[in-house]
Amino acid sequence: MESCSSEGGTVVMSAVTKRFGSFAALKGIGLSVDRGEKIVICGPSGSGKSTLIRCINRIEKHDGGSIVVEGCLLDHRLTNIDKVRREVGMVFQSFNLFPHMTVLENCMLAPMLVRGLKAAEAEDVAISYLRRVRIADQAAKYPSQLSGGQQQRVAIARAMCMKPKIMLLDEPTSALDPEMVKEVLNTMIELAGDGMTMICVTHEMGFARQVADRVIFMDEGAIVEEGAPEQFFRQPKTQRARDFLSQVLH
């Protein structure tokens, strides 16, 4: 507790490194995110994008450097990890809804167990967010009864029910059938309108253009280039970014 302060950015990473065996996934990442900022991270596969955002709520443990989230230093101290995870929501590529619980139960669980809400309060919160992602009518169903796009919207609602200050989205549309990408992107655009801090790994460049304050391009475990979306898409500074963009923008 005493190691958390309210100074500086929402997320401040400095010289963060991470190895998987002999493979260096992150090679000294420095990144500072302001409150309410929308950041899109892109780059070729294996460039460390997912690893980077997974370090922010410590789903992945970094090896070197420091990560401060909402004023809390992430290290071996478990109390800080709990505190950070309470303020940081996450949406995964493969949804990761709990298959043995209904949509409603998926959304109620963490607010009850972590925030200590009563069942009735948690249900109100859950229904209000399910309504916002336009899926409240499916609240009694199990995840397997929904389409991919619907499942991902539930996953977004589930994360929102914890009222996080920061939202991490790890390729939220990559596992979806093409016709479902739009409904999820629209939900994310609405989310962005709320003023929440968002860090999103995605190849949806239309989304980046429309929503991002800053685009970060990664390659081989490092941030190669960053800037405002207009500038990044019109005039990428590095050859690597140009190569990448020529492949994703068709």
């Binding site: 709520n57 789903i59 709990d82 309470r86 995964f92 493969s94 669980l109 167990l113 589930r158 914890m162």
Partner: peptide, 15 residues
């Protein structure tokens, strides 16, 4: 049980 289930639980702040 897929790893993603544990990750989602942790990400939600569950002990």
């Amino acid at each position: 049980v897929p790893r993603g289930q544990t990750e989602a639980a942790h990400a939600l702040g569950l002990s």
